[in-house]
Amino acid sequence: MPGEYLHLRLRVNGEQHQLACASHKTLLEVLREDLGLTGTKHGCELGECGACLVLVDGTPVLSCLALPQELQGREITTVEGLADGPRLHPLQQAFAELGAAQCGYCTPGFLLAAKALLAEQPAPSREAIRQALAGNLCRCTGYLKIFEAVELAARRMAGAATPGGQRSAATEAK
């Protein structure tokens, strides 16, 4: 198709990528189609559902409305970048345990929105969680298990961060 090609340098999940792609591709399309990072989902491509949410320098943005050429030099995090090797992020662990992922399609977006929230507020109230996740639609869970999972992860992360605090996932594993 007509249009320009451009050369992109994108930093995604801590890895530097260089690629050439059509200049009118969104970040969502580049992630899924050029980088093979299909964990980022799409439900509308118009900014109306939150399924494609990723973090840019830790801030939630919708990849379906983001242009990659404006994000060069920034740190992009997708769901593939949440776990530390085989070690799940506490949010992933909590989502899995509490059934916060049913069909799992909206889950990557929720996980990343929640990660950004916990970075800003380590012990958010239920209301703060609701507000922070109000840009992500879920049709399976009714959101309640998602709220509970964020709360559980927050408690565990607080426990891990405070020596002598709450039992943490890390100490339990020993």
């Binding site: 198709m1 007509p2 249009g3 320009e4 451009l6 059509a22 200049s23 009118h24 591709k25 969104t26 399309e29 799409h42 509308c44 491509e45 118009l46 242009l67 050429q69 404006e70």
Partner: peptide, 12 residues
């Protein structure tokens, strides 16, 4: 996928 029409992009 809803796709953007082709365009040129500047970032002044």
């Amino acid at each position: 996928m809803m796709r953007l029409p082709p365009f040129r992009h500047y970032r002044p």
